[in-house]
Simulated scan of single mutants.
Amino acid sequence: MLDESLLDAPDALARADRRDLLRGAAEAGARVRTAARHATEAGITELKPEGRPRAVLVAGPGTAATGAADLIAALAGASAPVTRIHPTGVAPAPGALRWTLPGWAGSVDLLLIATADGSEPGLALLAEQAYRRGCTVVAVAPLRSPLREAVHGVHGLVVPMASAPHGEYDAETSAAGPGTLWALFTPLLALLDRVGLVTAPAEALQSVADRLDRTAERCGPAVATYSNPAKTLAAELADSLPLIWTEGDAAGPVGRRFAAVLAELSGRPALAAALPEALPAHGGLLAGAFAAGADPDDFFRDRVEDTEPLHARVVLLRDRPTGGLSAAPAARELALGHDTAISELEPEEGSTLESLAELLAVTDFAAVYLALASAPGA
């Protein structure tokens, strides 16, 4: 159950936030600026590549690395194929994970490694394997980490991960924490700008940081729920199964990350799919056991011990449309035809990177509020 009264009690939220998740969300803009500076100091902006890589490979553990790979693929588009190397192993512990280059990877390909830990021996082995194959290797990892020592100056280029402005967060939640994604993603954006796969010059990264700051002001704990888009979304998603429907290049990876972060931070299931495929894929959920009218009130039901059943709620995440074609009207018609409520998020005008940043910030804040207001003892 969500304690909605907690959403408008900043002091109580601060006491419940033992993992500093709200601070991580608020400091995302600062992490972008620090990460951009680290990229410059590491020499990223001075690189003079001879051409574009044939393919980009991305490796790293956790939600942040997965999100970064997804975002890179969306932004690169048709410029180059982007492949995430999925880890294998008997456990998710850093020492147990292993990554293997695909057989076709070679000297014309680029390997990006992103980790908030840096102690994974499997990533050091991957960098060694890539070096032997002739791949260019660029890693983002904590400054004092075994991976940095293994890669720096010998097998590739390492950019120090931007740490939190006021100290590190709980290591167990840092991979899903709001600031970690930007600390890993920003240097990779600067690199991909230099090799011509995305457009992310220094001024664009500054605009992203500014948009994150403005969104944090709108979504912060001191802002009341009625005027706070993140708190409003969190309240709307209470006791629901979010069906996250996305439309637009930037919205797709944001929706998938939102589903992952909801599960990891707040323990809530969610499903993400892109329009228009989301309509047939999730249409059955609107008419089945998760439909708004399912499980009618039973006179003999024990209202003390029984919990309320989950009902589907559509979350529509959209970029501002660039053309006249949109599946949003059909999505609204399908949802409302099944008496299913809809929450909609659409960013303000700006570049693709700014739109992506705003959607990420609002959904990250919403996931944090759900985690805090739903926590036992909250």
Rank of each mutant, 00 (worst) to 15 (best):
P201W: 04
A263D: 08
D8C: 07
V362F: 07
L126M: 12
K48P: 06
G156P: 04
F299L: 15
T115H: 11
A114F: 09
T136P: 00
V158N: 00
G267M: 01
G255E: 06
L147P: 09
P187G: 02
S145L: 02
R148W: 02
L243S: 04
V108W: 08
D8R: 01
P329E: 04
P94Y: 11
D302L: 04
G24C: 04
R54Y: 06
P309D: 10
G255R: 13
D20F: 01
L6M: 10
A357P: 12
Y131C: 11
P347T: 12
R23Y: 08
D11C: 03
S107H: 14
L147G: 08
D193T: 04
R144V: 07
A127Q: 10
D213A: 11
L57G: 08
V56H: 07
G324K: 04
E4L: 10
A74T: 00
S374E: 10
L47H: 08
A183K: 06
A366E: 07
L241H: 06
H311Y: 09
P87H: 03
P160E: 10
L126Q: 09
R33D: 11
T45S: 14
L316K: 08
P229M: 02
D70Q: 12
H282L: 15
V154A: 15
S207A: 15
T34A: 13
L360N: 13
R303Y: 13
L112C: 12
E41Y: 00
A260N: 07
S174Y: 05
L243Q: 11
A26E: 08
P94F: 06
E305M: 12
R332T: 11
R320Y: 08
P187N: 10
V314N: 01
L184N: 03
R194Y: 08
V195L: 02
E247N: 07
R15D: 14
A204G: 05
A59W: 05
L125P: 01
R318S: 14
V32E: 12
S163C: 02
H86N: 11
V56A: 05
S119V: 13
L360G: 02
T225D: 06
A16G: 11
T363M: 13
G43M: 04
E46N: 12
A331H: 11
H155Y: 14
D193R: 06
A14H: 02
A366F: 01
P10L: 02
E348I: 07
G67L: 04
L112T: 00
R214G: 07
A16F: 03
L262A: 11
A76D: 06
R132M: 14
L286S: 13
A59Y: 00
G323N: 13
L189M: 04
A292V: 01
G106I: 02
A222S: 14
V151R: 09
E236W: 02
V32S: 09
R313C: 02
A335R: 10
V138H: 09
A175Y: 09
A28W: 06
A171L: 08
F300P: 00
H166N: 15
G51Y: 03
E128T: 14
L111Q: 07
S343L: 08
A230D: 07
T63A: 03
G337E: 01
A278W: 03
G29R: 00
E344K: 10
L275V: 12
P276I: 10
A238R: 11
V32G: 11
V151C: 05
V154H: 15
E128C: 00
V304L: 12
A292I: 03
